[in-house]
């Protein structure tokens, strides 16, 4: 998984979806809707345990955390990125990518 996938947008947030208990087909459907809204093509998704964010914060001493940001339902953002320190952002993104599994769209 490329760390770049997790790097924050210029507003300092990485957009994520809470998928615990959500059927796989519904996850893909939601992702597809989000991609369409942005005129993007969906190729894959990166799944990772929510506790990874806290573990990463501890390991890197960067206070990243997840905050709910609905709508859309189950949407959240990873916030707390050090926007003035690119090298620290890269380190955090690597840690998150390490815990993620890639699911390709069929």
């Amino acid at each position: 998984m490329k760390p770049a996938v997790f790097l924050p947008a210029p507003n300092g947030e990485t957009s994520v979806l809470r998928i615990d208990g959500v059927p796989d087909n519904l996850i893909w459907q939601t992702a597809e809707t989000m991609a369409n809204e942005r005129n993007q093509t969906l190729y894959a998704r990166a799944d990772f345990p929510a506790e990874t964010v806290n573990a990463t914060a501890e390991a890197t001493k960067v206070k990243v955390s997840v905050v709910i940001a609905e709508p859309p339902p189950r949407h959240a953002n990873i916030i707390g990125w050090p926007m003035d320190d690119k090298d620290k952002r890269l380190l955090v993104a690597m840690q998150l990518a390490n815990a993620a599994s890639l699911a390709l769209k069929e």
Binding site: F6, L17, L42, A46, F48, P49
Partner: peptide, 8 residues
């Protein structure tokens, strides 16, 4: 949690 993926 999921995010989309658009020496010698």
């Amino acid at each position: 949690m999921s995010t989309i993926v658009l020496s010698r």
